[in-house]
């Protein structure tokens, strides 16, 4: 009887911890998401701000990340169905720009493969650590797929996640300005470039400019994730083994 009672108490405590971690993460995130929608400021990124609140909270209460993650990793599991949901915008965009699909693929495959290789070589040269190189090479694509690939190639998930937000903010804040300055003014080229380098953050920002920006950007965001998923497990380990 005693043992039975103990296990009941444990389960209650486990469920309470689970609910506290998950709900507080969700509440903080929703608060910042609301703030961003109200202010329309790109740099008030809810993911980044939530991390900046949750980390000091955990440190102040002496809670190890492992303990927090043990209860909140249900969110990471939810990324899998979230990836599947991206099939919907892919279907919509492939319909609208079917005529240029092959040429879009040609540009994306060659640019992404080249930059994957350049990223890995440079990152290994600068940081001399393979896990960081993997994380930084995968930073241009949408988070759920990048995290799945990071895990597969033994990168550091946290660095991938943060680098992805930085890459997204770069394209969302400066993307159009840089491309205009360099004379890359076609709406399709701008959409493609920002969707490829700055995934959903860049896409959501430039979709407000024109329909073509949005269509090419969302197509680039999903296609580059698929291309990276196919090519990075070949290119990255190959270069890492050559540089070892």
């Amino acid at each position: 009887m005693n043992e039975f009672d103990f296990s009941r108490i444990d389960i209650a405590a486990e469920i309470t911890t689970f609910l506290i971690y998950c709900l507080s993460t969700l509440l903080i995130y929703q608060g910042f998401a609301y703030l961003q929608r109200a202010t329309k400021q790109i740099w008030l990124n809810p993911m980044l701000l939530t991390m900046l609140v949750v980390i000091p909270l955990l440190l102040a209460n002496n809670i190890a990340f492992e303990h927090y993650y043990q209860y909140s990793k249900i969110y990471s599991f939810l990324l899998e169905p979230a990836i599947v949901a991206l099939g919907f915008p892919l279907y919509q965009q492939v319909q609208t720009i079917r005529a240029q699909f092959n040429k879009v693929m040609l540009v994306l495959v060659s640019s992404i493969s080249l930059m994957l290789a350049v990223n890995v070589v440079m990152a290994v040269y600068i940081f001399n650590q393979h896990d960081i190189a993997v994380s930084l090479a995968l930073k241009s694509i949408t988070t759920p797929i990048a995290l799945a690939l990071t895990e597969q190639m033994r990168g550091i998930a946290a660095i991938t996640a943060v680098a992805i937000i930085i890459a997204g903010l770069v394209g969302a804040i400066w993307g159009i300005r840089i491309l205009n300055f360099l004379g890359i003014k076609s709406k399709r080229a701008q959409g493609l470039a920002i969707g490829c380098a700055s995934h959903a953050l860049g896409t959501s920002n430039i979709s407000q400019i024109s329909y073509q920006h949005g269509a090419f950007s969302s197509l680039a965001l999903i296609l580059s994730a698929i291309i990276t998923a196919i090519f990075s497990p070949i290119i990255i380990p190959m270069i890492l083994s050559l540089m070892a």
């Binding site: 993460t25 969700l26 995130y29 929703q30 998401a33 809810p46 993911m47 980044l48 939530t50 991390m51 949750v54 980390i55 955990l58 440190l59 990340f65 927090y68 993650y69 909140s72 990793k73 969110y75 990471s76 939810l78 990324l79 979230a82 949901a85 988070t143 759920p144 995290l147 550091i156 998930a157 946290a158 660095i159 991938t160 996640a161 943060v162 937000i165």
Partner: peptide, 13 residues
């Protein structure tokens, strides 16, 4: 789906 990335990102600590 943004909230799903938070726990992985908190790992930066």
């Amino acid at each position: 789906m943004g909230v799903c990335f938070v726990p992985a990102g908190v790992g930066i600590m």
